[in-house]
Design a protein around this nucleic acid. Sequence first.
DNA 1: CTGAAAGCGCTTACAG
DNA 2: CTGAAAGCGCTTACAG
Lengths: 331, 331
Amino acid sequence: MRVTIAEVAQRAQVSKATVSRVLNGKPDVDAGTAQRVRKVIDEIGYVPSARAVGLARGRTRTVGMLAPSLTWPWMGEVLQGIVDTLEADGYGLLLYTINRGPESLNQFANHVSANAFDGLLVIEPPDTLHYISTLHRAGLPVVMIDDRGSHPEFPSVTTTNRQGGADVARHLVAAGRRRFAVVTGPPHFGCTQARLDGFRLALAEAGLTLHPDLIADGDFTTEGGEVAVDKLIASGVPFDAVFAHNDLSAVGVLRALREAGRSVPGDVSVVGFDDVPVAGHTEPRLTTIRQPLREMGAAAARMLLSTLEGQPLPDQPLVLPTSLIVRESAP
Amino acid sequence: MRVTIAEVAQRAQVSKATVSRVLNGKPDVDAGTAQRVRKVIDEIGYVPSARAVGLARGRTRTVGMLAPSLTWPWMGEVLQGIVDTLEADGYGLLLYTINRGPESLNQFANHVSANAFDGLLVIEPPDTLHYISTLHRAGLPVVMIDDRGSHPEFPSVTTTNRQGGADVARHLVAAGRRRFAVVTGPPHFGCTQARLDGFRLALAEAGLTLHPDLIADGDFTTEGGEVAVDKLIASGVPFDAVFAHNDLSAVGVLRALREAGRSVPGDVSVVGFDDVPVAGHTEPRLTTIRQPLREMGAAAARMLLSTLEGQPLPDQPLVLPTSLIVRESAP
DNA sequence: CTGAAAGCGCTTACAG
DNA sequence: CTGAAAGCGCTTACAG
């Protein structure tokens, strides 16, 4: 019922081997023969079975993607960059998350063992770095997106977090701000440290420092941003600028400041990080550091594809540039 | 190098057929034999090759998902619902979009012909309904999410758009509003009509009507919402409430009203539709109709899985309930 | 330049 | 209850 290579072979009066050669652009096929085979293929609309090709070749032309969650505001852009890139090469994307706990990881491991895909793109779910490393060592090509500063032993794509932090500081200093507060990301994330380091460094260049009581730990959520501002205010140390380590917490910062009766940017400037869509929808709109999300996905996919096609793995992380986006919250 | 069924068979002193029977829980295997086989499987950590099983069985335990774009704000929730549901059954999800135009569709068609997946979930990309119908008629199980009122010939999951529109009207009327404006979705979408119809109907029940000049066509984007409000204001007809057909355009409505110097909700109440995250981040926060996005994805996935497992297809769309979420933009 | 045959790693009648 | 064999639909040495 399904059209197979055997039918093409029969109609074109050649062997299946020859059809296969034409299909895969192998050399040493008579031009006339090749043309005849191609004609039949077009006529009956033959497409090789992905399963059979995969089994025979030992590869699926499919890439897996593992992510902690699909509902993070920047995930769509990253995914779109990945899908666009893979699709252009005829690769498929199998999507996995770890949303249902250990059982999820178990299912994912099964698909890995079943060789359901040729290579893996990963946005590291919590506490899985060791496991991913195991897979990598066992021979599965892996590229990580956003290494969070963990510098794994496999290739990764990241952004200039440190530079981004520095850009924020310089912008705020240039705008005349002098008393700085920070709402950090999760403290154990490398990117949190990088953003903080860059920020501090640029302040130091301007002869300024960061008051220890004005560093509040956040968790990359809106609620975390609100709580952090409450703590900052409770500290009693005055501040005229807040650098939130992502946009989501910056949204919380804006809300908490408003509730505390402080105007933005009149009393306090606020800067975020990421440039997700919500940054353009707050009131006032958010000044932030743009991460090139789609490009990150595309670059990671390209890296993985080239290793699947036999190129050597890069041994340095690929670092993509961030950029400052100035809006009303910190003009 | 890879562990195969042959190795398991040899170690357990049985044939490959028997291993296969144990693997697939077939009856009529001696309990002792089965136990011995399972022991070997555990010991050497054998997992059947997805490719080989797929080829032999003619099915891949993989589902395809086709969407116009992955960056829409509600896409992540829908996807998460889908992935969670599929994963619980050991199914994989192959993700496709039509982001690069005709060439994308071509690649997608190739994967379909290659039998890369057993069934398809689809959020209809523009102008592909006919193509999808063709696939469905050719025997590919298809479930559509958010049919936009197009009532296709295959199963679908949708929400109570009409009821949602009516809920908005009743809420606004109860709050004392009397002069209503609407910023619609794309006029040819069925859901746009349903939301508008429900809204009108509930107004009529209250003895109220919608002024024709206060219906502005939007396009589900923020910019579209802004432009629409400009038109409403230019019409010169006074209004004290705006029903935007999705949250993104409601964000544009809020912005345009602010720029026009009208206060929300003081002068004008604003209600959206969807309840995507940004609805909780605007100023004022947005009253809206919640669509159960994750449930929609999960329900569609469940429908598809049950047809793949031989259940009959439902001939009626599955309609999930919306609910009114009251926030400050229309208390 | 081309074909026959083996092989990829499973499942599934068919026999016994 | 179990095994030998054919088959799923390709690719790839091996011969010629």
